[in-house]
């Protein structure tokens, strides 16, 4: 039987750990709600923009609009954007992204990787720390993005990436991130950011409205495409941010539960040990008295 003091110390340590994890769970829950609000606020804008794009592309007879973001060429130079978190303690959140990125590098883009034509851009310190130690070309990290996550800040990064695509620095840009499903579930997503697929030319269900276009259809589409790209990028980063807090909340919840179970088991052990010790002492006293009388 383990000695009483050792068990008592362990119980105390578990209790203080549980306090920390449950506090972290509360913090994550609060941050999760705040971040979720951001996504909710983005949604009307994203939806309206999409509606407009669909409306416009329907009224365009032939999509002859020159789209500099749609340049499809064999992917010789590839950029992969890896979105992780800045902090740990969120379960498999970062590991999933890192593993997927490694898989993409070694399987899908093995040739480009060998030729040194594969570049990584990390958003989030965890991914940066991991890939810094590998032999991968990396752009300056964008880890500070999460400190002040607004559309304007994310926009700057998106513009930079789009510019490097149009100036032929890269032929293909992919995004790997965790998409938020609910607090407990993240969907690991790997999507092509650039080149964009041609504007969806869905069959018109309603009679297209006869709009006046200012300055002109082509110009408007040309402005809308980069806008919707930026929104897509912002949404990815935001999704990952929300998913991170969800993952952390769940991880901390589980840690708290585990601590509770362990504390209960240890307390049982402690009480057993305590009772055994008392029984022993009584036995000693009784047998001592017995010996004296004899």
């Amino acid at each position: 039987m383990a000695n009483l003091k050792a068990i008592r110390i362990r119980i105390t340590s578990f209790k203080s750990t549980r306090q920390i994890t449950s506090a972290m769970k509360m913090v994550s829950a609060a941050k999760l709600r705040k971040a979720q609000d951001k996504i909710v606020r983005l949604r009307p804008y994203a939806n309206k923009l999409h509606e407009l794009l669909v409306d416009l592309s329907q009224s365009l007879s032939d999509s002859e609009v020159e789209n500099i973001y749609g340049r499809v060429s064999p992917p010789e130079k590839v950029l992969i954007i890896v979105v992780t978190s800045n902090r740990g303690l969120c379960g498999a959140f970062n590991t999933n992204v890192i593993n997927e990125t490694r898989r993409v590098i070694t399987e899908k883009y093995a040739d480009q990787f060998r030729m040194g034509n594969l570049t990584l851009l990390t958003i989030g310190k965890k991914g940066f720390d991991y890939f810094r130690k590998q032999k991968v070309t990396m752009l300056p990290d964008q880890n500070n993005l999460f400190n002040d996550l607004t559309f304007e800040n994310v926009n700057l990064v998106a513009e930079q990436i789009m510019k490097s695509f149009t100036s032929l620095e890269f032929d293909r840009v992919e995004l790997i991130y965790n998409q938020f499903k609910n607090a407990a579930v993240q969907n690991l997503t790997n999507e092509v950011f650039l080149p964009v697929e041609t504007v969806p030319s869905g069959k018109s269900k309603t009679v297209p409205t006869d709009y006046i276009y200012e300055p002109g259809k082509e110009e408007i589409i040309k402005e809308l495409i980069p806008k919707s790209l930026k929104i897509q990028f912002y949404k990815a980063v935001l999704d990952s941010f929300v998913a991170e807090h969800g993952a952390r909340m769940t991880a901390m919840h589980k840690a708290t539960d585990n601590a509770t179970v362990l504390i209960r088991e240890l307390t049982l052990q402690y009480n057993k040990a305590r009772q055994a010790a008392i029984t022993n002492q009584i036995l000693e006293v009784v047998s001592g008295a017995e010996a004296l009388r004899g």
Binding site: L52, D55, L56, T209, D210, Y211, I212, Y213, E214, P215, E219, I220, E223
Partner: peptide, 19 residues
């Protein structure tokens, strides 16, 4: 502030899309 100059929209304006 439209791209081709500022304009005003009143009730029953014709459908328009402008940057």
């Amino acid at each position: 502030p439209g791209k081709k100059g500022s304009f005003q929209v009143l009730k029953d304006h014709a459908p328009i899309i402008s940057t």
